[in-house]
Measured scan of single mutants.
Amino acid sequence: KKKYVIKVYFEDTGKEVEIEAESKEEALEAAKRLAEELGLKIKKVEIYP
């Protein structure tokens, strides 16, 4: 089964997080949740198959 690796870059902090997920949708949801939890804004998202 294919996994996606999503790199999320946050504004202000210069922080980046990698998330593995089964689908792009799932990964983007996780990225949004994470940003909310951390109180950060997402600057850029890169998706690698």
Rank of each mutant, 00 (worst) to 15 (best):
Y9K: 04
V17W: 12
E20Q: 07
Y9C: 05
K7E: 01
K7Q: 03
V17C: 11
L34E: 03
V45K: 01
Y9D: 02
Y48E: 06
A27M: 02
E20G: 07
P49M: 12
K7F: 05
R33N: 11
K41G: 07
L40G: 02
P49V: 04
E46G: 02
L40M: 07
K1H: 11
I6Q: 00
I42K: 00
T13C: 14
E26M: 10
T13G: 08
L34S: 04
V17L: 07
K41D: 11
A21D: 02
V5S: 06
L40A: 04
V45N: 01
V8Y: 03
K32T: 10
K43A: 11
E46Y: 08
A35R: 01
K41L: 13
P49Q: 15
E25G: 07
K44C: 06
K32Q: 09
E25F: 07
A27W: 03
K32L: 10
I42R: 00
A31M: 03
K1S: 07
F10Y: 03
V5E: 02
I6L: 05
E29L: 11
L38G: 02
V8I: 15
L38A: 06
A35H: 01
E36R: 14
A35E: 04
K41F: 12
L34K: 11
K15I: 09
E18I: 14
I6M: 07
K41T: 12
Y4P: 00
L28C: 02
K43F: 13
G14S: 15
F10L: 02
K15D: 06
K15N: 11
A35P: 01
K7N: 03
R33D: 10
I6F: 10
E22N: 11
E36C: 03
K1Q: 13
A27E: 00
G39E: 06
E18G: 04
E20K: 11
D12I: 14
A35S: 06
K44A: 11
E26D: 06
K43T: 13
I19F: 10
L34D: 01
E36P: 01
Y9M: 10
K41P: 15
E46I: 10
A31S: 06
Y9A: 03
E36L: 13
K2M: 15
E36V: 14
F10R: 00
I19Q: 02
K3M: 15
I42M: 02
K44H: 14
E46A: 04
I47P: 03
E26N: 06
E11P: 01
A27S: 04
Y4A: 02
V5I: 11
R33I: 13
A21L: 10
E29A: 14
S23V: 03
A31V: 13
K1E: 09
L34F: 05
Y4H: 04
F10M: 02
A21N: 03
I47C: 08
S23K: 02
L34P: 00
T13E: 09
K43N: 14
E18P: 03
E46L: 08
E46S: 04
K24Y: 12
E36A: 10
K1A: 13
L34I: 07
V17G: 03
K2H: 15
K44Y: 12
Y4N: 01
D12A: 05
V17H: 14
E29S: 14
E20P: 09
E18Y: 05
G14P: 08
Y48V: 13
K7L: 07
T13N: 15
I42Q: 00
A35N: 01
Y48D: 04
I47W: 15
E25K: 08
E26W: 15
G14R: 06
K2C: 15
V17F: 08
D12Y: 13
K43W: 12
A30K: 12
K24F: 06
K15Y: 14
K3T: 07
K24W: 11
A27N: 00
A21R: 07
K1M: 10
L34H: 11
I47Q: 04
I6V: 08
A21T: 05
E16Q: 08
E26L: 06
E20V: 12
A21K: 05
I19T: 03
A27I: 03
I19E: 01
I47L: 12
K2W: 15
D12N: 11
V5K: 11
E29C: 14
F10D: 00
E18R: 04
Y48F: 14
T13F: 09
V8C: 02
E25C: 04
E29K: 09
E18M: 10
D12S: 08
K32V: 09
K1D: 14
K44Q: 13
G14W: 15
E20S: 09
V17E: 06
E16V: 08
Y48P: 03
A27V: 05
L40E: 07
P49N: 11
L40P: 01
Y9F: 09
R33A: 07
L38Y: 06
E18S: 09
S23R: 03
A21Y: 03
T13Y: 11
S23Y: 03
K24N: 06
A27K: 00
E16G: 08
G14Q: 14
V45P: 01
K41R: 15
Y48M: 13
K41I: 10
V8E: 00
E26H: 11
P49T: 13
P49R: 04
G39W: 01
Y48W: 15
A30G: 10
V8G: 00
K44F: 09
K41W: 04
L28P: 01
K24R: 10
